[in-house]
Design a protein around this nucleic acid. Structure first.
Lengths: 215, 215
DNA sequence: AAATTGTTTTAGACTAGACTAAAAAAATAT
DNA sequence: ATATTTTTTTAGTCTAGTCTAAAACAATTT
């Protein structure tokens, strides 16, 4: 499987995780910052290899085989991210692009040994689940901070948006995985939140609150 | 720089280390298992980028810039090999192909952090020198086992041939980096050697003896 | 010095993956 | 129901890197 094929599979996998319905050519093109015509070409190729179910003009979904392949790429991505943060001391906003490269290294043995070396983690540095060697995923129960009631307290267990900008913002506010967060007030006018992080009190927008997972 | 460009540079670098004279198109083609015409195409491209000095029909050599780039690839290759053996518990005959992939990961920061994580090693698991971040190489004084006199004792500090077959043979004979080796007898008829490795006495051919470095 | 052999380069073709522009199909609006 | 807009596909072009076959050059032999 080529790098490009792997990137398409991964993108379709992530899109399927949020949409249920078949994935459109345009949705893939947009996410990958490429053109719809390029996507069509690749979908034909992936369908030929029985990695996706593709019907002209009707969108695409992963086959069992494609799903497993995609999970293995996600597994690699998240294990490498964990390695970079835990062992090489990278911060959580730096690791995505590097993992995008490392996820294409071809060796089952390597990734399984890396998994063991890291102590078989079930979540990556952003709180996302790491599929095991057979593709099984341990679901983490969590909810968005924005869904929490006033006066409730929770622990930050993940982030929805993993962009560098958002993660740097969280660093600045001293919000990290494991941080205790308490909802002090919900402002109905602009849906912003007054929260306590550790000992500090800060105000965050609804957009921020709806990108933080709490347990 | 593309993967392919990097592979050509690395090959030229390794050929220059053993030959002094300019490197021929055919030598590169043979080492890379490709065709001479493909090599010519790439040499033009590398010359264009001022990574090599190339004159039609006269062979090629690395420029300063090319040399540094090649060293950085070798550095990455050898640091990843060290990581695989030291941290992930791979054996020394398994790591070459994996390092061929990992050496193309693009990030200076990553490789420097990996270097630190490994304790800034100066040699890889085969006893080859690892260039530092600025390309400097700590020369290791060593000689071939085949050049040693009778009754001399030395420590294995490296191997010349790093093929999986040869390394597996050494494993079988219980020869590893750090093994003490004593020359018991040199057989003049076939130039074979009677040696003691640790407590065991074995016979090895001249070919074997001329691929083991001793200090 | 000419002929032969071997090496290297050129010319032209191929593939994967991207692109643009145009055509076809589907969805939406009137 | 027809017209318009949007989405998707097709057709054809481009680039990087490879290849084969032929031509050009260099080295060796006679």
């Amino acid at each position: 499987m080529t790098f490009s094929e792997e990137n398409y599979l991964k993108t379709i996998y992530h899109l399927m995780a949020v949409s249920d319905a078949d994935i459109s050519t345009n949705a893939i093109a947009e996410k990958m910052e490429t053109k719809a015509s390029s996507v069509t070409d690749m979908l034909k190729k992936l369908a030929e290899k029985e990695l996706v179910n593709y019907i002209k003009y009707q969108g695409v979904s992963l086959t069992e085989k494609g799903q497993l392949a995609a999970k293995m790429i996600v597994r690699k991505h998240r294990l490498w991210e964990t390695f970079l943060v835990e062992k090489l001391d990278f911060s959580w906003d730096e690791v995505h692009d590097l993992a995008e490269q490392l996820e294409h290294i071809k060796s089952e043995k390597l990734i399984n040994k890396l998994d063991d070396f890291l102590g078989n983690p079930t979540e990556d540095p952003h709180g996302d689940a790491i599929p095991d060697a057979s593709g099984r995923i341990t679901k983490i129960e969590k909810q968005l901070l924005s869904e929490l009631e006033k006066n409730r307290v929770g622990i930050c267990v993940g982030v929805k948006d993993t962009s560098s900008d958002f993660l740097k913002y969280l660093d600045k506010q001293e919000i990290a995985l494991g941080s205790q967060i308490e909802i002090i007030e919900k402002e109905s006018f602009d849906s912003s939140f007054r929260i306590r992080v550790g000992t500090k009190e800060i105000t965050i927008s609804h957009k921020i609150a709806s990108n933080i997972y709490i347990k």
